[in-house]
Design a protein around this nucleic acid. Structure first.
Length: 423
RNA sequence: GUGGGCGUAGCUCAGUUGGUUAGAGCGCCAGGUUGUGGUCCUGGAGGUCGCGGGUUCGACCCCCGUCGCUCACCCCA
């Protein structure tokens, strides 16, 4: 019989790696709550229009990378390629009181060729805050991300920030940019000599020398902001300065989704040496609720890729665990399994993480399992202990047989164990 | 979608110009007398050499195809 393996671009995560995921998500949840966000769960698939209208039909993700499928009722759905559109759809549907602040953790799906830091199923955590256009909210969202990265132990992270303006500022800029590109279209890279007029902003994002040269001495987006948008950007930057969050203005930062207005930002991990070094990003999307059929409501959010965060930690050599995931006690029972069964239940009820030997294995063999389990203490139960209604408590970190080991009565074991582990 | 590298035991890898029963380390299991892990010693289990064709007296090795992994371009988390 042939076996199966995980689909292209997907991965199974087992221990001990999975403990890093647990710790990372728990850390994010903790910070999200500190900042006043509550958890939101939305379906992993949506009507395809949620994403087409949300992130923009012309975007790379919507046109080439979505997992679209028909269900048995002939409805057209798509697995979500990012987090924001679903949350905003839910916001429009349920109309919670504002300001609404939700955090999420979710798989995201994009049909692409996998490579370092890029997968067909990856995982994002993020927040969305709707109902206020106060730049102080932008600052909070960015600060949450920043503090979270710090908590993960990341130090080599740069924050790039820009403003897309609102519709009018942006279209004025795009017009001028288009003119500039037309004038210099012959000097653009091979791809953009053909496609520059379709979406001029994309050219800013191009990493090839010719396009960089052309756009470098072209119009700069921040110069085209209206007074309100310019003030907004300035106040966001002022807030970041107040918090000591270093950032640089990145006039060519436009990002891949069409919904952004005003503030956009991206976190780059310099420890990641490849092209997939963006560990998070986001921005303000003041027109998105309307595009999804709701009332005008301003919003801002950010998303971050779990796989990339873990890669960045690894690249920086951060080894902290984030969460404890080891067992406290291993029960070795050579008198049959009855004592172990009840003792394990008692200890678990008392809050200990308990593992035990299974099968009629020798004490030596079970001790070996105890050692490998990482438990600090082994509890030994053999015929002698059963006869005396006692348990032998052995500290596995010690190599001194006499000191490491003591007999405890069955009824005192919880207290003795607690006392020992707290030492 | 395009291109480079790679697929041998659970893991990391050897495998000479194609030549008998395919190896190592780690891991796993069991022993090293009378109930005790981590070091040491001994033994053992475990592989359709990714899969399918082809060349050859003979293929892990050569050729073709295919699947997968990986890296890069593009784009993004």
């Amino acid at each position: 019989m042939t076996s199966f393996q995980s689909p292209i671009g997907t991965h199974d995560v087992l221990a001990p790696q999975s403990a890093l995921w647990e710790g990372l998500v728990a850390t994010f949840a903790q910070y999200a709550y500190r900042f006043g966000f509550t958890l939101i769960l939305t379906p992993m698939f949506e009507e395809v229009g949620v994403f087409n209208r949300g992130i923009g039909e012309g975007s790379e993700v919507a046109t080439k990378e979505m997992y679209v499928f028909q269900d048995r009722g002939d409805r057209t759905y798509a697995l979500r390629p990012e987090g924001t559109a679903s949350v905003v759809r839910a916001f429009v549907q349920h109309q919670p009181t504002t300001p609404y602040k939700g955090w999420y953790v979710t798989p995201a799906f994009r049909y692409e060729r996998p490579q370092a830091g890029r997968y067909r199923q990856h995982h994002q955590l993020g927040v969305e805050a709707l109902g206020s256009d106060d730049p102080a909210l932008d600052v909070e969202v960015i600060a949450l991300a920043w503090r979270f990265f710090q908590a993960l132990g990341l130090t080599r992270v740069r924050l790039l920030i820009n403003s897309m303006g609102h519709d009018e500022c942006r279209s004025r800029y795009v017009d001028v940019l288009r003119g500039h590109l037309e004038e210099h279209r012959a000097q653009l890279c091979d791809e953009h000599t053909v496609t520059w007029s379709h979406n001029p902003l994309r050219v800013l994002d191009c990493k090839r020398e010719p396009c960089i040269a052309v756009t470098d001495d072209g119009p700069s987006l921040p110069d085209f902001l209206c007074a309100d948008c310019a003030t907004h950007l300035a106040r966001v930057r002022h807030g970041l300065d107040q918090l000591g969050i270093d950032h640089v203005l990145a006039p060519r930062l436009v990002r891949g989704f069409d919904y952004y207005t005003r503030t956009t930002f991206e976190f780059v991990a310099d420890a990641l040496g490849n092209a997939q070094n963006a560990i998070g990003g986001g921005g303000r999307y003041d027109g998105l609720t309307e595009r999804l059929g709701g009332k005008p409501t301003s919003g801002i959010g950010f998303g971050s890729g779990i796989e990339r965060l873990l890669l960045a930690r690894e690249a920086e050599g951060v080894t902290s665990n984030l969460i404890k995931r080891s067992i406290d006690v291993f029960i070795v029972d050579t008198s049959g399994q009855d004592v172990a069964t009840v003792l394990a239940d008692d200890l678990r009820a008392a809050g200990f993480a308990v593992e035990r030997g299974f099968g009629e294995r020798s004490m030596k063999s079970q001790m070996k399992s105890a050692d490998r389990s990482g438990a600090r203490v082994a509890l030994l139960i053999g015929p002698q202990e059963v006869a005396a209604d006692q348990i032998t408590m052995r500290d596995l970190r010690s190599d001194d047989f006499e000191q490491a080991q003591q007999r405890v009565t069955r009824e005192n074991i919880v207290g003795a164990l607690r006392g020992h582990l707290e030492k």
